[in-house]
Nucleic acid binder design. Structure first.
Lengths: 142, 142
DNA sequence: TTGTATTTCATTGTGCACAATCTAATTTCG
DNA sequence: CGAAATTAGATTGTGCACAATGAAATACAA
């Protein structure tokens, strides 16, 4: 029954570390009044002028049941606008408000701060990221 | 602003892969009527006759706000007993019922099934687990 | 011993995640 | 064209996570 020991599970450190990493981000994100998933949406929208809910979900591996209420909260706090597409009314486009765009300035330092708290080498960080991404991309999206 | 690109974040693949991994477990765990965090509690209790809520939280990095309702649900489904300690009434001990112990037989095959779905080498799996655990253990528990 | 601090768990409230279901819009195909 | 299938989001319900607070029991110090 060795496989059933917690120590022998890959998934557990993945699960635990993922939560602890978002806990590392939390104090920084609180200053911007963002949660970690909201921060991920902001990262996407700082890169792309306009994205549909579908596109955001595709990037973040999240479905509308998660994104719809999350984006509504972000709309309420004035970070994004949600616009029903006129050509295809099934689609909702999301884009940053002026305030949302300005928030980028306050977020610039976050990755460096997190990195320094981790105290691992840049090389190791990148190889780890690569390994995790490789596994992730092998898992089929339903 | 390169650091603010989704692709350059370590935390994102960690977050996304963690969720996708629990999604891999889901079909197997549904047959046992367990969620992934409940499965982690079962792993601990299959190894240890009796654990306090505190000890479970310490192992899984979860607090009572998460564990209390989770353990109550597991008590309702008949997997565990929750017993207030008589020597120190602040403590609640958790232990498996007969049914809970028997469930181990049905769970034995799960890790191998997950492993085969991942299609990565055993060596890579172990080194990855080790790296993640190392980072995790460097992060201070509050 | 008595007041204070600490420990352990429970409770409340908010925000994800995600399955299941629904609605409306669009596409496809006979 | 018109019915059936597909697609994009929204809704509902359940179960985590976790901050903040509270309550009760124990430890500890003066």
């Amino acid at each position: 029954m060795d496989q059933l020991h917690l120590d022998n599970q890959l998934c557990f450190p993945l699960y635990a570390l993922s939560r602890q990493m978002t806990a590392l981000y939390r104090p920084y994100l609180e200053k911007l009044e963002l949660t970690y998933p909201q921060y991920l949406v902001m990262l996407l929208l700082w890169e792309h002028e306009k994205l549909s809910v579908k596109e955001i979900g595709c990037e973040l591996w999240l479905d509308s049941g998660t994104l719809t209420p999350l984006l509504k909260r972000m709309e309420e706090t004035g970070l994004v606008d949600r616009l029903r597409c006129t050509e295809d009314e099934r689609i909702v486009h999301v884009q940053l408000t002026k305030e949302g765009k300005l928030l980028q300035k306050k977020a610039v330092g976050i990755p460096d701060n997190i990195f320094s708290e981790l105290s691992i080498s840049n090389v190791q960080l990148k190889s780890l990221k690569k390994e995790l991404s490789a596994i992730l991309n092998k898992l089929e999206k339903k």
